[in-house]
Design a protein around this nucleic acid. Structure first.
Length: 237
DNA sequence: CCCTGATTCGC
DNA sequence: GCGAATCAGG
């Protein structure tokens, strides 16, 4: 299996989403954990808390010299150079842009049948829309809320053949601003579809999935690292 | 032992 | 470019 655009995208998404290399490898399938890590490095997206990165501890001089772990079969003469340890270059952290994807999958709009387009349900006179979800989720109206990390930017998914098994499910084409866009299952699988429940007013998801998509900001120290992402983490169904 | 990511190096 | 083998910390 080669690294297609899709697989690379998934890798990148999951890696940045906090999934471990093992999880990513399992998700992609037919690749090893090492392959995922290797690919991730080649893509330039490394870093992330690694167990083998904490090299310094309050100790200014750490005599770490282990750049020759490859004895191989032939081991000629050892390097006579005492290696005077060159200047430690302070690696400047490159500012990363997390790739803003304002791509809102607004359907071609169904002219007739549906009610007139209502861009802003709450204008100036509207009282405050308060949406409450599980997990202490409580937000103000859509106006004073900046969307957190987009949990699942729907990729371009083209159902090659309309699978009868998802005939009654919410497909990509069935998405509107009235139904929950939470993806169910994994892209590429025959039964991949979307939640389709009535949305929590002002949100792209239903109440239940809002609770998953928008985690309440917990006080420092009690934060959960990986918010449950839709298709990205381990399979949940 | 298990897990993790990092790195190397032959292909 | 790819990934198994290896290293190394938790």
């Amino acid at each position: 299996m080669s690294w297609t655009e899709e697989r690379t995208a998934t890798l990148k998404r999951m890696w940045e989403g906090g999934s471990t290399a093992t999880e990513i490898a399992k998700e992609l399938g037919e690749v090893s954990r090492n392959a995922v890590i290797g690919k991730a490095h080649r893509l330039g997206l490394k870093s992330r808390p690694s167990p083998v990165k904490a090299a310094d501890k309050t100790k200014p001089a750490a005599p770490k010299a282990k750049p020759a772990p490859k004895p191989k079969a032939a081991e000629p003469a050892p390097a006579p150079a005492p290696t005077p340890t060159p200047a430690p270059t302070p690696a400047p952290a490159p500012a990363e842009k997390p790739e803003p994807k304002p791509e809102a999958a607004q359907g071609p709009a169904t002219p007739q049948g549906q009610d007139a387009p209502e861009p802003e349900a709450a204008k100036s006179s509207s009282p405050r829309v308060v949406s409450v979800g599980p997990g202490g989720f409580l937000r103000q109206g859509p106006g004073d809320q900046q969307p957190p990390i987009p949990p699942a930017p729907p990729r371009r998914l083209v159902p090659a053949k309309p699978d009868p098994s998802i005939a009654d499910k919410t497909s990509l084409l069935d998405l509107s601003d009235k139904v929950c866009r939470w993806p169910m299952g994994h892209p590429g699988e025959p039964d991949f579809h979307f939640c389709g429940e009535a949305v929590n007013p002002g949100f792209p998801y239903c109440v239940e999935h809002c609770g998953r998509a928008y985690q309440a900001q917990l006080p420092r120290g009690s934060r959960r690292p990986p918010p449950p992402l839709p298709y990205g983490g381990p399979r949940v169904r």
